[in-house]
Design a protein around this nucleic acid. Structure first.
Lengths: 233, 233
DNA sequence: CGGCCCCTTGAACTGTGTCAATTTTCGTGG
DNA sequence: CCACGAAAATTGACACAGTTCAAGGGGCCG
Protein backbone atom coordinates (compact mmCIF):
# COMPACT_ATOMS: atom_id res chain seq x y z
CA UNK A 1 0.00 0.00 0.00
CA UNK A 2 2.84 2.39 0.84
CA UNK A 3 4.40 1.51 -2.49
CA UNK A 4 1.04 2.11 -4.11
CA UNK A 5 0.71 5.53 -2.57
CA UNK A 6 4.09 6.59 -3.79
CA UNK A 7 3.30 5.27 -7.23
CA UNK A 8 0.09 7.26 -7.58
CA UNK A 9 1.63 10.45 -6.26
CA UNK A 10 4.62 10.14 -8.54
CA UNK A 11 2.34 10.02 -11.55
CA UNK A 12 -0.02 12.69 -10.27
CA UNK A 13 0.12 16.02 -12.12
CA UNK A 14 0.08 17.72 -8.73
CA UNK A 15 3.58 16.50 -8.03
CA UNK A 16 5.24 16.74 -11.42
CA UNK A 17 8.73 18.12 -11.33
CA UNK A 18 9.34 17.29 -7.67
CA UNK A 19 12.48 15.41 -6.73
CA UNK A 20 11.94 11.94 -5.29
CA UNK A 21 12.97 12.92 -1.77
CA UNK A 22 10.79 16.04 -1.87
CA UNK A 23 7.87 13.89 -2.91
CA UNK A 24 8.55 11.51 -0.05
CA UNK A 25 8.70 14.40 2.41
CA UNK A 26 5.43 15.80 1.12
CA UNK A 27 3.75 12.42 1.22
CA UNK A 28 4.93 11.90 4.78
CA UNK A 29 3.09 15.04 5.88
CA UNK A 30 -0.24 13.95 4.44
CA UNK A 31 -2.86 12.00 6.32
CA UNK A 32 -4.20 8.87 4.78
CA UNK A 33 -7.97 8.58 4.84
CA UNK A 34 -10.00 5.55 3.89
CA UNK A 35 -13.61 5.90 2.91
CA UNK A 36 -16.23 3.29 2.27
CA UNK A 37 -18.78 3.59 -0.50
CA UNK A 38 -21.15 6.52 0.15
CA UNK A 39 -19.01 7.94 2.94
CA UNK A 40 -18.32 11.68 2.82
CA UNK A 41 -14.85 13.22 2.81
CA UNK A 42 -16.29 16.69 3.38
CA UNK A 43 -19.59 18.51 3.06
CA UNK A 44 -20.56 21.64 1.17
CA UNK A 45 -20.51 24.63 3.49
CA UNK A 46 -18.08 23.20 6.03
CA UNK A 47 -14.91 25.16 6.72
CA UNK A 48 -12.33 23.99 4.16
CA UNK A 49 -9.44 22.49 6.04
CA UNK A 50 -7.75 19.99 3.81
CA UNK A 51 -6.64 19.63 0.25
CA UNK A 52 -6.88 16.04 -0.94
CA UNK A 53 -5.46 13.80 -3.65
CA UNK A 54 -7.23 10.57 -4.46
CA UNK A 55 -5.06 7.46 -4.24
CA UNK A 56 -7.53 4.83 -5.26
CA UNK A 57 -11.23 4.70 -5.88
CA UNK A 58 -13.13 7.81 -6.79
CA UNK A 59 -14.91 10.81 -5.30
CA UNK A 60 -18.09 12.42 -6.55
CA UNK A 61 -18.27 16.17 -6.06
CA UNK A 62 -21.80 17.50 -5.80
CA UNK A 63 -23.44 20.84 -5.11
CA UNK A 64 -26.94 21.41 -3.89
CA UNK A 65 -29.04 24.50 -4.49
CA UNK A 66 -30.96 26.28 -1.76
CA UNK A 67 -34.03 24.41 -3.01
CA UNK A 68 -32.33 21.05 -2.70
CA UNK A 69 -31.65 20.40 -6.37
CA UNK A 70 -28.40 18.54 -6.80
CA UNK A 71 -25.72 18.84 -9.47
CA UNK A 72 -22.61 16.73 -9.99
CA UNK A 73 -19.62 19.01 -10.43
CA UNK A 74 -17.19 16.27 -11.39
CA UNK A 75 -15.67 12.94 -10.47
CA UNK A 76 -12.17 12.85 -8.99
CA UNK A 77 -10.04 9.81 -9.79
CA UNK A 78 -6.63 8.50 -8.68
CA UNK A 79 -3.90 11.11 -8.83
CA UNK A 80 -6.40 13.95 -9.08
CA UNK A 81 -6.72 16.74 -6.58
CA UNK A 82 -9.71 18.40 -5.04
CA UNK A 83 -10.54 21.13 -2.55
CA UNK A 84 -7.80 23.51 -3.64
CA UNK A 85 -9.88 26.09 -1.83
CA UNK A 86 -8.38 24.75 1.41
CA UNK A 87 -5.16 26.56 0.55
CA UNK A 88 -6.67 29.77 1.84
CA UNK A 89 -8.09 30.55 5.25
CA UNK A 90 -11.71 31.39 5.85
CA UNK A 91 -13.09 29.47 2.89
CA UNK A 92 -15.87 26.90 2.86
CA UNK A 93 -15.97 23.77 0.75
CA UNK A 94 -18.12 24.70 -2.24
CA UNK A 95 -19.22 21.10 -2.76
CA UNK A 96 -19.68 17.77 -1.04
CA UNK A 97 -17.24 14.92 -1.71
CA UNK A 98 -18.66 11.42 -1.51
CA UNK A 99 -16.80 8.17 -2.09
CA UNK A 100 -18.23 6.38 -5.09
CA UNK A 101 -16.70 3.05 -4.13
CA UNK A 102 -14.16 2.16 -1.47
CA UNK A 103 -11.70 4.98 -1.76
CA UNK A 104 -8.50 6.15 -0.15
CA UNK A 105 -7.16 9.69 -0.27
CA UNK A 106 -4.21 11.55 1.13
CA UNK A 107 -4.99 14.93 2.67
CA UNK A 108 -2.99 17.88 3.92
CA UNK A 109 -4.33 20.43 6.41
CA UNK A 110 -3.92 24.10 5.56
CA UNK A 111 -1.08 24.75 7.99
CA UNK A 112 0.95 22.06 6.30
CA UNK A 113 0.03 23.37 2.89
CA UNK A 114 1.50 26.74 3.73
CA UNK A 115 4.82 25.15 4.60
CA UNK A 116 4.78 22.94 1.56
CA UNK A 117 4.02 25.81 -0.79
CA UNK A 118 6.95 27.72 0.65
CA UNK A 119 9.37 24.80 0.56
CA UNK A 120 8.34 23.60 -2.88
CA UNK A 121 7.27 26.49 -5.09
CA UNK A 122 6.85 24.02 -7.91
CA UNK A 123 3.91 22.60 -6.02
CA UNK A 124 2.05 25.91 -6.08
CA UNK A 125 2.74 26.23 -9.79
CA UNK A 126 1.42 22.75 -10.44
CA UNK A 127 -1.78 23.52 -8.59
CA UNK A 128 -2.02 26.75 -10.51
CA UNK A 129 -1.72 24.90 -13.79
CA UNK A 130 -4.34 22.39 -12.80
CA UNK A 131 -6.74 25.14 -11.88
CA UNK A 132 -6.29 26.96 -15.18
CA UNK A 133 -6.99 23.71 -16.98
CA UNK A 134 -10.03 23.05 -14.88
CA UNK A 135 -11.29 26.57 -15.56
CA UNK A 136 -11.17 25.78 -19.24
CA UNK A 137 -13.13 22.59 -18.75
CA UNK A 138 -15.71 24.33 -16.61
CA UNK A 139 -16.30 27.10 -19.09
CA UNK A 140 -16.64 24.51 -21.84
CA UNK A 141 -19.37 22.87 -19.83
CA UNK A 142 -20.95 26.25 -19.19
CA UNK A 143 -21.08 26.89 -22.90
CA UNK A 144 -22.53 23.47 -23.59
CA UNK A 145 -25.18 23.91 -20.98
CA UNK A 146 -26.12 27.30 -22.37
CA UNK A 147 -26.25 26.39 -26.02
CA UNK A 148 -26.70 22.68 -26.56
CA UNK A 149 -29.54 20.21 -26.55
CA UNK A 150 -29.87 17.55 -23.93
CA UNK A 151 -28.83 14.65 -26.20
CA UNK A 152 -25.51 16.28 -27.01
CA UNK A 153 -24.82 17.14 -23.40
CA UNK A 154 -25.55 13.62 -22.23
CA UNK A 155 -23.37 12.17 -24.98
CA UNK A 156 -20.53 14.45 -23.97
CA UNK A 157 -20.93 13.61 -20.30
CA UNK A 158 -20.64 9.92 -21.11
CA UNK A 159 -17.61 10.47 -23.30
CA UNK A 160 -15.90 12.46 -20.57
CA UNK A 161 -16.59 9.69 -18.08
CA UNK A 162 -15.29 7.12 -20.54
CA UNK A 163 -12.06 9.06 -20.83
CA UNK A 164 -11.44 9.34 -17.10
CA UNK A 165 -13.12 6.20 -15.81
CA UNK A 166 -13.43 4.00 -18.87
CA UNK A 167 -12.31 0.39 -18.98
CA UNK A 168 -11.87 -1.40 -22.28
CA UNK A 169 -13.75 -4.65 -22.54
CA UNK A 170 -14.55 -6.85 -25.49
CA UNK A 171 -18.03 -5.34 -25.56
CA UNK A 172 -16.77 -1.76 -25.76
CA UNK A 173 -15.78 0.81 -23.17
CA UNK A 174 -17.35 0.24 -19.80
CA UNK A 175 -17.71 3.13 -17.41
CA UNK A 176 -16.10 1.78 -14.31
CA UNK A 177 -18.25 3.21 -11.57
CA UNK A 178 -21.82 2.73 -10.39
CA UNK A 179 -23.72 5.26 -12.47
CA UNK A 180 -27.47 5.73 -12.19
CA UNK A 181 -29.68 7.50 -14.70
CA UNK A 182 -30.01 10.20 -12.12
CA UNK A 183 -26.24 10.61 -11.84
CA UNK A 184 -26.04 11.11 -15.59
CA UNK A 185 -28.90 13.60 -15.40
CA UNK A 186 -27.19 15.60 -12.68
CA UNK A 187 -23.98 15.62 -14.67
CA UNK A 188 -25.60 16.98 -17.78
CA UNK A 189 -28.32 19.24 -16.45
CA UNK A 190 -31.42 17.26 -17.24
CA UNK A 191 -33.81 14.76 -15.64
CA UNK A 192 -33.50 11.04 -15.12
CA UNK A 193 -36.53 10.52 -17.34
CA UNK A 194 -34.97 12.17 -20.32
CA UNK A 195 -31.76 10.24 -19.75
CA UNK A 196 -33.70 7.01 -19.54
CA UNK A 197 -35.37 7.70 -22.88
CA UNK A 198 -32.08 8.66 -24.51
CA UNK A 199 -30.40 5.51 -23.27
CA UNK A 200 -33.27 3.42 -24.61
CA UNK A 201 -32.92 5.06 -28.04
CA UNK A 202 -29.17 4.60 -28.05
CA UNK A 203 -29.45 1.04 -26.92
CA UNK A 204 -31.75 0.40 -29.86
CA UNK A 205 -29.23 2.03 -32.17
CA UNK A 206 -26.46 -0.19 -30.80
CA UNK A 207 -24.49 2.72 -29.39
CA UNK A 208 -24.67 1.85 -25.71
CA UNK A 209 -25.64 -1.05 -23.55
CA UNK A 210 -26.77 -0.30 -20.07
CA UNK A 211 -28.52 -1.55 -17.03
CA UNK A 212 -28.89 -0.75 -13.41
CA UNK A 213 -26.04 1.59 -12.46
CA UNK A 214 -24.01 0.39 -15.42
CA UNK A 215 -23.15 1.83 -18.83
CA UNK A 216 -21.10 0.32 -21.62
CA UNK A 217 -20.34 2.36 -24.69
CA UNK A 218 -20.45 -0.08 -27.56
CA UNK A 219 -19.79 2.49 -30.24
CA UNK A 220 -17.75 5.46 -29.05
CA UNK A 221 -17.79 6.63 -32.63
CA UNK A 222 -21.58 6.73 -32.59
CA UNK A 223 -21.63 8.70 -29.37
CA UNK A 224 -19.14 11.18 -30.75
CA UNK A 225 -21.40 11.63 -33.75
CA UNK A 226 -24.19 12.63 -31.38
CA UNK A 227 -21.95 14.83 -29.28
CA UNK A 228 -20.73 16.64 -32.38
CA UNK A 229 -24.16 16.67 -33.95
CA UNK A 230 -22.94 14.99 -37.12
CA UNK A 231 -25.36 13.69 -39.76
CA UNK A 232 -26.86 10.60 -38.12
CA UNK A 233 -24.29 7.82 -38.58
CA UNK B 1 -1.82 58.15 -16.11
CA UNK B 2 1.28 56.63 -14.54
CA UNK B 3 -0.13 57.52 -11.14
CA UNK B 4 -3.42 56.03 -12.22
CA UNK B 5 -1.79 52.78 -13.20
CA UNK B 6 -0.05 52.45 -9.91
CA UNK B 7 -3.27 53.18 -8.09
CA UNK B 8 -5.23 50.47 -9.83
CA UNK B 9 -2.50 47.88 -9.42
CA UNK B 10 -2.08 48.68 -5.75
CA UNK B 11 -5.74 47.97 -5.15
CA UNK B 12 -5.85 44.92 -7.40
CA UNK B 13 -6.21 41.58 -5.63
CA UNK B 14 -3.52 40.25 -7.95
CA UNK B 15 -0.92 42.36 -6.18
CA UNK B 16 -2.03 42.19 -2.58
CA UNK B 17 0.78 41.71 -0.13
CA UNK B 18 3.49 43.00 -2.45
CA UNK B 19 5.85 45.65 -1.17
CA UNK B 20 5.63 49.02 -2.92
CA UNK B 21 8.98 48.65 -4.65
CA UNK B 22 8.16 45.12 -5.76
CA UNK B 23 4.92 46.41 -7.22
CA UNK B 24 6.78 49.13 -9.08
CA UNK B 25 9.25 46.60 -10.46
CA UNK B 26 6.45 44.33 -11.62
CA UNK B 27 4.55 47.20 -13.18
CA UNK B 28 7.66 48.32 -15.01
CA UNK B 29 7.91 44.97 -16.74
CA UNK B 30 4.38 45.06 -18.10
CA UNK B 31 3.37 46.48 -21.42
CA UNK B 32 0.64 49.05 -21.55
CA UNK B 33 -1.99 48.43 -24.20
CA UNK B 34 -4.78 50.74 -25.20
CA UNK B 35 -7.86 49.46 -26.92
CA UNK B 36 -10.73 51.27 -28.50
CA UNK B 37 -14.29 50.11 -28.20
CA UNK B 38 -14.78 46.74 -29.99
CA UNK B 39 -11.05 46.18 -30.41
CA UNK B 40 -9.76 42.70 -29.47
CA UNK B 41 -7.00 42.07 -26.96
CA UNK B 42 -6.76 38.43 -27.99
CA UNK B 43 -8.81 35.83 -29.83
CA UNK B 44 -10.02 32.40 -28.81
CA UNK B 45 -7.67 29.75 -30.16
CA UNK B 46 -4.60 31.96 -30.48
CA UNK B 47 -1.49 30.90 -28.61
CA UNK B 48 -1.72 32.41 -25.13
CA UNK B 49 1.20 34.74 -24.67
CA UNK B 50 0.23 37.37 -22.15
CA UNK B 51 -1.54 37.63 -18.85
CA UNK B 52 -3.40 40.92 -18.50
CA UNK B 53 -4.81 43.18 -15.82
CA UNK B 54 -7.38 45.80 -16.77
CA UNK B 55 -6.48 49.34 -15.74
CA UNK B 56 -9.51 51.19 -16.98
CA UNK B 57 -12.51 50.34 -19.08
CA UNK B 58 -13.71 46.79 -19.39
CA UNK B 59 -13.16 43.62 -21.39
CA UNK B 60 -15.83 41.18 -22.49
CA UNK B 61 -14.71 37.55 -22.58
CA UNK B 62 -16.65 35.44 -25.06
CA UNK B 63 -16.50 31.88 -26.33
CA UNK B 64 -17.95 30.60 -29.56
CA UNK B 65 -19.04 27.06 -30.26
CA UNK B 66 -18.06 25.16 -33.37
CA UNK B 67 -21.49 26.10 -34.77
CA UNK B 68 -20.93 29.79 -34.15
CA UNK B 69 -23.14 30.21 -31.09
CA UNK B 70 -21.65 32.73 -28.73
CA UNK B 71 -21.54 32.84 -24.93
CA UNK B 72 -20.27 35.59 -22.65
CA UNK B 73 -17.96 34.05 -20.08
CA UNK B 74 -17.61 37.21 -17.98
CA UNK B 75 -16.73 40.87 -17.94
CA UNK B 76 -13.33 41.96 -16.64
CA UNK B 77 -13.12 45.33 -14.90
CA UNK B 78 -10.35 47.53 -13.51
CA UNK B 79 -7.92 45.64 -11.27
CA UNK B 80 -9.14 42.28 -12.51
CA UNK B 81 -6.97 39.75 -14.25
CA UNK B 82 -7.57 37.58 -17.25
CA UNK B 83 -5.78 34.99 -19.34
CA UNK B 84 -4.06 33.24 -16.44
CA UNK B 85 -3.63 30.43 -18.91
CA UNK B 86 -0.70 32.39 -20.36
CA UNK B 87 1.38 31.35 -17.37
CA UNK B 88 1.98 28.00 -18.99
CA UNK B 89 3.52 27.22 -22.36
CA UNK B 90 1.65 25.59 -25.17
CA UNK B 91 -1.80 26.85 -24.17
CA UNK B 92 -4.36 28.64 -26.29
CA UNK B 93 -6.64 31.43 -25.16
CA UNK B 94 -9.93 29.72 -24.36
CA UNK B 95 -11.91 32.87 -25.11
CA UNK B 96 -11.88 36.14 -27.01
CA UNK B 97 -11.33 39.42 -25.14
CA UNK B 98 -13.03 42.48 -26.61
CA UNK B 99 -12.93 46.02 -25.25
CA UNK B 100 -16.41 47.12 -24.25
CA UNK B 101 -15.50 50.79 -24.21
CA UNK B 102 -12.15 52.52 -24.50
CA UNK B 103 -9.95 50.36 -22.34
CA UNK B 104 -6.35 50.16 -21.19
CA UNK B 105 -4.66 47.07 -19.84
CA UNK B 106 -1.22 46.10 -18.66
CA UNK B 107 0.11 42.81 -19.95
CA UNK B 108 3.06 40.57 -19.18
CA UNK B 109 4.46 38.01 -21.64
CA UNK B 110 5.05 34.49 -20.39
CA UNK B 111 8.82 34.77 -20.14
CA UNK B 112 8.43 37.72 -17.81
CA UNK B 113 5.77 35.89 -15.82
CA UNK B 114 8.19 33.08 -15.09
CA UNK B 115 10.67 35.51 -13.62
CA UNK B 116 8.02 37.33 -11.66
CA UNK B 117 6.60 34.16 -10.18
CA UNK B 118 10.06 33.15 -9.04
CA UNK B 119 10.95 36.54 -7.62
CA UNK B 120 7.60 37.14 -5.96
CA UNK B 121 6.05 33.86 -4.78
CA UNK B 122 3.24 35.90 -3.27
CA UNK B 123 2.17 36.73 -6.80
CA UNK B 124 1.66 33.09 -7.70
CA UNK B 125 -0.32 32.60 -4.51
CA UNK B 126 -2.52 35.58 -5.30
CA UNK B 127 -3.28 34.23 -8.74
CA UNK B 128 -3.96 30.86 -7.20
CA UNK B 129 -6.45 32.38 -4.81
CA UNK B 130 -8.19 34.29 -7.57
CA UNK B 131 -8.54 31.13 -9.60
CA UNK B 132 -10.03 29.18 -6.72
CA UNK B 133 -12.54 31.98 -6.22
CA UNK B 134 -13.37 32.06 -9.88
CA UNK B 135 -13.83 28.30 -9.90
CA UNK B 136 -16.45 28.75 -7.23
CA UNK B 137 -18.26 31.40 -9.24
CA UNK B 138 -18.16 29.31 -12.38
CA UNK B 139 -19.56 26.26 -10.71
CA UNK B 140 -22.31 28.40 -9.21
CA UNK B 141 -23.23 29.52 -12.69
CA UNK B 142 -23.04 25.95 -13.91
CA UNK B 143 -25.50 24.92 -11.25
CA UNK B 144 -27.81 27.81 -12.06
CA UNK B 145 -27.77 26.99 -15.72
CA UNK B 146 -28.51 23.36 -15.00
CA UNK B 147 -31.32 23.85 -12.54
CA UNK B 148 -32.91 27.28 -12.79
CA UNK B 149 -35.50 28.97 -14.96
CA UNK B 150 -34.60 31.70 -17.37
CA UNK B 151 -36.11 34.53 -15.32
CA UNK B 152 -33.97 33.69 -12.33
CA UNK B 153 -30.84 33.39 -14.40
CA UNK B 154 -31.40 36.71 -16.10
CA UNK B 155 -32.11 38.38 -12.78
CA UNK B 156 -28.90 36.95 -11.35
CA UNK B 157 -26.89 38.02 -14.36
CA UNK B 158 -28.13 41.58 -13.96
CA UNK B 159 -27.39 41.58 -10.25
CA UNK B 160 -23.87 40.33 -10.87
CA UNK B 161 -23.33 43.07 -13.42
CA UNK B 162 -24.72 45.63 -11.01
CA UNK B 163 -22.22 44.52 -8.41
CA UNK B 164 -19.19 44.76 -10.66
CA UNK B 165 -20.24 47.50 -13.05
CA UNK B 166 -23.08 49.27 -11.28
CA UNK B 167 -23.23 53.01 -10.79
CA UNK B 168 -25.61 54.53 -8.27
CA UNK B 169 -27.87 57.20 -9.69
CA UNK B 170 -30.98 58.83 -8.31
CA UNK B 171 -33.07 56.54 -10.48
CA UNK B 172 -31.45 53.38 -9.15
CA UNK B 173 -28.37 51.37 -10.08
CA UNK B 174 -27.31 51.86 -13.66
CA UNK B 175 -25.24 49.20 -15.34
CA UNK B 176 -22.36 51.20 -16.63
CA UNK B 177 -21.61 49.55 -19.93
CA UNK B 178 -23.39 49.25 -23.26
CA UNK B 179 -25.52 46.16 -22.80
CA UNK B 180 -27.81 44.82 -25.49
CA UNK B 181 -30.62 42.33 -25.00
CA UNK B 182 -28.44 39.88 -26.82
CA UNK B 183 -25.54 40.42 -24.42
CA UNK B 184 -27.83 39.63 -21.51
CA UNK B 185 -29.08 36.55 -23.34
CA UNK B 186 -25.56 35.30 -23.96
CA UNK B 187 -24.70 35.86 -20.32
CA UNK B 188 -27.62 33.86 -19.05
CA UNK B 189 -28.04 31.15 -21.63
CA UNK B 190 -31.22 32.22 -23.38
CA UNK B 191 -32.41 34.18 -26.42
CA UNK B 192 -32.71 37.91 -26.95
CA UNK B 193 -36.46 37.49 -27.42
CA UNK B 194 -36.99 35.98 -24.02
CA UNK B 195 -34.83 38.69 -22.46
CA UNK B 196 -36.82 41.36 -24.25
CA UNK B 197 -40.07 39.99 -22.89
CA UNK B 198 -38.69 39.71 -19.37
CA UNK B 199 -37.44 43.26 -19.46
CA UNK B 200 -40.84 44.43 -20.62
CA UNK B 201 -42.52 42.63 -17.74
CA UNK B 202 -40.05 43.97 -15.21
CA UNK B 203 -40.33 47.46 -16.58
CA UNK B 204 -44.09 47.24 -16.07
CA UNK B 205 -43.50 46.05 -12.51
CA UNK B 206 -41.20 49.00 -11.87
CA UNK B 207 -38.18 46.81 -11.27
CA UNK B 208 -36.01 47.95 -14.15
CA UNK B 209 -35.91 50.71 -16.68
CA UNK B 210 -34.15 50.04 -19.91
CA UNK B 211 -33.62 51.13 -23.44
CA UNK B 212 -31.22 50.66 -26.25
CA UNK B 213 -28.03 49.12 -24.77
CA UNK B 214 -28.92 50.49 -21.36
CA UNK B 215 -30.28 48.99 -18.14
CA UNK B 216 -31.13 50.70 -14.87
CA UNK B 217 -32.19 48.61 -11.92
CA UNK B 218 -34.83 50.66 -10.14
CA UNK B 219 -35.57 48.10 -7.49
CA UNK B 220 -32.62 45.85 -6.66
CA UNK B 221 -34.81 44.34 -3.98
CA UNK B 222 -37.37 43.35 -6.58
CA UNK B 223 -34.72 41.73 -8.74
CA UNK B 224 -33.33 39.80 -5.81
CA UNK B 225 -36.84 38.54 -5.10
CA UNK B 226 -36.92 37.13 -8.62
CA UNK B 227 -33.39 35.76 -8.41
CA UNK B 228 -34.21 33.99 -5.15
CA UNK B 229 -37.65 33.00 -6.34
CA UNK B 230 -39.37 34.60 -3.38
CA UNK B 231 -43.15 34.98 -3.26
CA UNK B 232 -43.82 37.86 -5.68
CA UNK B 233 -42.71 41.16 -4.14
C1' DC C 1 -31.93 62.39 -43.80
C1' DG C 2 -30.95 57.64 -44.47
C1' DG C 3 -29.58 53.34 -42.98
C1' DC C 4 -28.19 50.27 -39.61
C1' DC C 5 -28.82 48.31 -35.35
C1' DC C 6 -31.50 47.33 -31.56
C1' DC C 7 -35.71 46.32 -29.68
C1' DT C 8 -40.66 44.70 -29.53
C1' DT C 9 -44.50 41.79 -30.24
C1' DG C 10 -47.28 38.14 -32.06
C1' DA C 11 -48.16 33.35 -33.32
C1' DA C 12 -46.96 28.67 -33.69
C1' DC C 13 -44.15 24.91 -32.45
C1' DT C 14 -41.59 21.65 -29.70
C1' DG C 15 -38.17 19.73 -26.59
C1' DT C 16 -38.15 18.66 -22.10
C1' DG C 17 -39.92 18.62 -17.66
C1' DT C 18 -43.54 16.73 -14.62
C1' DC C 19 -46.19 13.17 -12.66
C1' DA C 20 -48.04 8.65 -11.99
C1' DA C 21 -48.14 3.83 -12.62
C1' DT C 22 -45.35 -0.39 -13.43
C1' DT C 23 -41.67 -3.31 -14.01
C1' DT C 24 -36.98 -4.79 -13.29
C1' DT C 25 -32.97 -5.54 -10.65
C1' DC C 26 -30.43 -6.68 -6.80
C1' DG C 27 -29.09 -7.24 -2.06
C1' DT C 28 -30.54 -9.18 2.31
C1' DG C 29 -32.27 -11.98 5.71
C1' DG C 30 -35.25 -15.68 6.89
C1' DC D 1 -32.06 -20.65 -1.91
C1' DC D 2 -36.00 -18.23 -2.22
C1' DA D 3 -38.81 -14.29 -1.09
C1' DC D 4 -39.17 -9.78 0.13
C1' DG D 5 -38.38 -4.96 -0.03
C1' DA D 6 -35.89 -1.09 -1.58
C1' DA D 7 -33.84 1.26 -5.19
C1' DA D 8 -33.44 1.95 -10.09
C1' DA D 9 -35.35 2.09 -14.46
C1' DT D 10 -39.17 2.30 -17.86
C1' DT D 11 -43.05 4.13 -20.13
C1' DG D 12 -47.00 6.91 -21.24
C1' DA D 13 -49.78 11.03 -21.01
C1' DC D 14 -49.70 15.75 -20.48
C1' DA D 15 -48.27 20.58 -19.83
C1' DC D 16 -45.75 24.50 -20.74
C1' DA D 17 -41.57 27.39 -20.68
C1' DG D 18 -38.98 28.98 -23.89
C1' DT D 19 -37.41 28.87 -28.78
C1' DT D 20 -38.11 30.02 -33.48
C1' DC D 21 -39.60 32.86 -37.11
C1' DA D 22 -41.67 36.86 -39.14
C1' DA D 23 -42.95 41.56 -39.34
C1' DG D 24 -42.54 46.18 -37.89
C1' DG D 25 -41.16 50.22 -34.92
C1' DG D 26 -37.76 53.39 -33.19
C1' DG D 27 -33.48 55.59 -32.03
C1' DC D 28 -28.85 56.97 -33.02
C1' DC D 29 -24.86 58.06 -35.86
C1' DG D 30 -22.65 59.47 -39.86
Amino acid sequence: MAADTHDVLERSPVFQGLAAEALAAVAAKGKLRRLQRRELLFSQGDAAEELAVVLEGRLKLTQVTAEGQEVIVRYVGPGEMCAAVALFPGQDYPATAEAVGDTSVIAWPRRTLDELAREHPQLALNVLRLLTERMGELSDRLRELATERVARRVARALLRLARTAGRRTDRGVEIDLPLTREDIARLSGTTLFTVSRLMADWEEAGIVESGRERVVIRSPHGLVAIAEDLPAE
